[in-house]
Amino acid sequence: MVPKQTAEIFQILSKGNFISSNGSQARLHDCISHDDNFRILKEYFAHIGYHLESGHNYYYFSQQDETNTNMEKKLEQFAHFIDVMDFFSCLDVKPVTGTRYRVTQIAEECFANERLRQKIFALSRKDKLIDKVIEVAGSLANGGFFEQEDEDTYKVMDAIHYLETIISLITIDDDGEQKNS
């Protein structure tokens, strides 16, 4: 028997979103991780071509077939995520699961830090600094990596591990250049 929340789960995952354990859909996360449900749902969705995948405290869908136009889009998107993640990882507070970012606080930090300022200017064309931050955080929220808790606050979801995993998969050729460590 598939759980009764299956339709709700499908609604979220089929849009390319994530279900994280520390977000507002924690209920659905618990439902999937309960007992045998993960296995049941994985098999269930596999029939219609969606692969339910699990990461560290988060779930998402993947699909196998691939076209070239898609590929290009993916590269672009991911390059954008590198920019955004770079920006957040340069902040004083790192984007780890559970981190809460206040837009005003980030804007304040950008205001004081020239390097951050440049980064955020490259990321958004909005006029005000605060709007820029909202746009950048919003793009992560759309991907399901952040969740907006109220007007000013964004919380980092478990799904951020997904980006981290991909980044860790990338190997940089050792070309003798000085590492940033």
Binding site: L13, S14, K15, G16, N17, F18, Y50, H51, E53, Y60, F61, S62, Q63, Q64, E66, N70, M71, K73, K74, L75, Q77, F78, G143, G144, Y162, I166, L169, I170
Partner: peptide
């Protein structure tokens, strides 16, 4: 690496 990720989020919806 990006080519090998199949998550739905990179799909055109």
């Amino acid at each position: 690496v990006v080519a090998s990720t199949n998550a739905l989020m990179f799909r055109k919806r």
